[in-house]
Write a protein that binds this DNA or RNA. Structure first.
Lengths: 256, 256
DNA sequence: TAAAATCGTTTCATAATACGAAACACTGTT
DNA sequence: AACAGTGTTTCGTATTATGAAACGATTTTA
């Protein structure tokens, strides 16, 4: 809580840092639990929560623990950033999911992470399921790698400077050189694969979505269990995903 | 800004009241514009916006005006209230929309208003389109009336005490007695109609969704232009919507 | 059954912070 | 050249947030 900041409302910052707890642990919290998580005083936490509750930003559940309230749902749905991406991606994603029968994701790079803007889940029982609005490390997912690959060289070197590549599985790329080579190959092939790099048994294909200036704005990925991703399927999957990407690109030519 | 409140963080309240501006006017705002809208001092508004920008709650658009930021999108998608309603309503709503080819809405009563939790738009060019997360007065919509009708008598009389029934069209019910009679009929028929009460040319059918205790938890509505809502269609529409309601009810039996 | 350990909540003197008028820098218009 | 818009910074003052301690109510442990 040092004041390196110029001149900001500290209690507003505190309030949102408290809400940030919910980004990591999506559960209901008590006053003392949140006080411990945030490092705030118990009374401070209590006062913040009372304030947020009065505003319908948080609310108590059946066990008198705090959960995020409906006002945040209302505000979240008003966010106009990437709104056209979200809007125009829906139907193409559904078409892809209908053909391939695997979960389809649509995301952008945000704060060095993949932010999922949209998804359509596989109709099958065994499937990948990610929450819209959640984010994931970029280096160990196909979607993240394809978004990185077509970023500027400055952005890529910045990414490597600030993000630690951690081992998720035996296949995870953990060296900067390894990732740079991988990104170069992705640029050449115009698609990315995640062969169990994030999680064992999980395979993922991703392709970029460009605007009219050939600048990357988003990516589409299809993911599922390795048992269903045979090498002979990947090419046909790619052409189906590319068809969806073309549809989206047709609508967002003025996106920047 | 009177302190009738017990002991709350006033600047946190100010911050969210500022964000509330976006609920009414979904546009980009400058510092002075927001200061005028909120009644805050220009400097206060500037400091609040700088704080919120540092937290990614708002961000500047191309014209250096403030819009809601992606952090709100992330938080909004974490809201767990009504999450299962939103989840289990999706496919039934899509099936209804596919059959009827009109826009289908799914909503609950929240703060005396209809809050739209989900929607599927009509595939036709001329269609009703409402924003998920937005809300609407209850008394002049079919969805609102059906949600009111099956509320407790206390809630209904409370509603009539606090909400002013304003004329939207010639058909709007503006008297308390008129609305009470209408709600009684809705309880008997188990569905509600909005015959151009909110907007001329706009017709809407709504039915309730109950939990296992026969308590209302949500409602489904189908809306479209009056030219496409012939009296002879309404009965067949109703049976299609009811089928969807049954599907949802099967999944939410423990909802309260 | 008593004691201890939780929980959320309230109090209040003190320390910290938000406030806002005024001045400033910048841009585009008259 | 004067004016009318922006957003931004400064700084003394008035307001507000802070947190240790005490409180009441449950639940758990001895």
């Amino acid at each position: 809580m040092k004041d390196v900041n110029k001149d900001l409302n500290l209690s507003v910052i505190k309030a949102f840092k408290l809400l940030d707890v919910y980004l990591n642990d999506k559960q209901a919290w008590g006053v003392r639990e949140l006080a411990k998580k945030t490092g705030y005083n118990k009374t401070t936490t209590y006062r913040l929560l009372s304030t947020l509750e009065a505003l319908d930003i948080v609310q108590k559940n059946d066990n008198d623990k705090y959960i995020l309230g409906l006002k945040l749902f209302e505000l979240g749905n008003l966010v106009s950033v990437h709104k056209s991406l979200r809007y125009y991606s829906r139907i193409p994603l559904e078409n892809i999911a209908k053909e391939i029968k695997e979960t389809v994701h649509f995301g952008v790079l945000n704060n060095s992470r993949v932010l999922y803007l949209n998804k359509v889940e596989s109709p099958l029982g065994l499937k990948v399921s990610t929450q819209i609005g959640s984010s994931q490390d970029a280096y160990c997912t196909a979607l993240g790698k394809v978004l990185l690959a077509f970023s500027s060289t400055d952005q890529i070197s910045d990414y490597l400077k600030h993000v630690k590549l951690k081992t998720c599985t035996l296949n995870t790329i953990v060296s900067s050189d390894g990732l740079l080579t991988e990104l170069k190959q992705i640029r050449e092939k115009e698609y990315a694969l995640d062969m169990e790099e994030l999680e064992l048994g999980l395979i993922c294909i991703a392709i970029p979505v460009f605007n009219k200036d050939k600048k990357i704005v988003a990516g589409i990925s299809v993911s599922g269990p390795s048992s269903r991703f045979k090498p002979e399927n990947i090419q046909s999957y790619l052409s189906i995903i590319k068809k969806g990407a073309f549809e989206i690109e047709a609508h967002i030519r003025d996106y920047n």
